[in-house]
């Protein structure tokens, strides 16, 4: 596939496929970045149109689909699609019941959303790397916006903005529920007076504060790292192996097939565990 753009070196090919279609303010006007450097110059107030768009499309698409199934759902005579959606909901509900000991109406839908959304975003990794980009969106962008060689990423979870956006939202929920259930004093006390008692407060803070902030960072970066690595290997295979890339793609896709649901599952499970800890009130 890579040979179709013969003028690109391997490095250029990979760099191209790892950059985003960024829209932002450059040289006093709004527009798409033409290179990764330009995208970096745009600073914070720019948006990755490709990953954001796919993320919104997949999230809204699956919620719309689930909602449509819910509206026409039947108790006695479920259709095949309803059985599938029910299986997903039941699976998530079972995980929540297992690991979450408190009553919170938001945990179930949160976990369903995270699990299925991330699963779909990860699954975009199985679409052959050039199918939607080099042969799909990039010519489209060329004709519509006259963009030369614009990148277009289709796997939202290879964008740290997307994964960190989700993990930080979970983190905000952790903070919110911690303060709601333990009180501000209880929450701060947990950071300051554990695990060694109040005479060791600085030491406790050194341990507990990084632990707290490690939660969203590890949550977001784990997902990003796994998918980024998977994507990168697909790109290496596509750019360097010639015709041999077909069996190699197959082998790596088969392996990646395990990573895709596993990462979605891990993200959901850790969210449950963290939020469960946020509800725990220590007994003294």
């Amino acid at each position: 596939m890579a040979e179709s753009t013969a003028e690109l070196t391997v490095q250029e090919y990979i760099t191209h496929h790892l950059s985003f279609l960024t829209f932002g303010r450059i040289d006093d006007h709004w527009g798409f970045a033409h290179s990764p450097e330009e995208a970096a110059e745009m600073g914070f107030w720019a948006i990755n149109v490709d990953t954001m768009g796919w993320s919104l499309f997949l999230g809204a698409g699956f919620l719309w689909f689930f909602r449509r199934v819910a509206v026409s759902a039947s108790i006695d005579n479920p259709s095949g699609i309803q059985n599938f959606v029910e299986a997903v909901v039941e699976f998530v509900e079972a995980r929540v019941t297992e690991a979450f000991d408190y009553k919170n109406e938001l945990i179930g839908p949160l976990c369903l959303l995270l699990f299925f959304w991330i699963l779909l975003m990860n699954t975009m990794d199985l679409v052959p790397v050039d199918l939607l980009t080099t042969f799909g969106f990039e010519p489209l962008l060329h004709t519509v916006f006259h963009l030369e060689n614009a990148p277009f990423k289709v796997v939202p979870t290879t964008d740290p903005n997307i994964t960190m956006g989700m993990s930080v939202t979970v983190f905000l929920m952790i903070i919110y529920y911690s303060i709601k259930n333990k009180g501000l004093g209880g929450f701060l006390g947990e950071l300051a007076f554990h695990p060694f008692g109040k005479w060791m407060m600085p030491f406790n803070l050194i341990i507990e504060v990084p632990t707290l902030f490690a939660k969203p960072i590890s949550l977001g970066l784990r997902l990003f790292g796994n998918l980024y690595a998977g994507e990168l290997l697909f790109l290496l295979i596509a750019s360097m192996l010639g015709l041999w890339q077909l069996p190699a793609h197959f082998v790596w896709a088969a392996f990646h097939l395990l990573v895709i649901p596993l990462q979605a599952f891990v993200f959901m499970m850790l969210t449950i565990v963290y939020l469960n800890a946020a509800h725990e009130v220590p007994h003294h």
Binding site: T22, G24, M42, G43, F44, W45, A46, I47, N48, T51, M52, S55, L56, G59, L113, D159, P160, N161, I162, M164, G165, M166, V168, T169
Partner: peptide, 12 residues
């Protein structure tokens, strides 16, 4: 990191 981060939070 850019505004995609905020966009994803709002979307979520």
């Amino acid at each position: 990191i850019n505004a995609t981060f905020l966009g994803q939070m709002i979307a979520m």
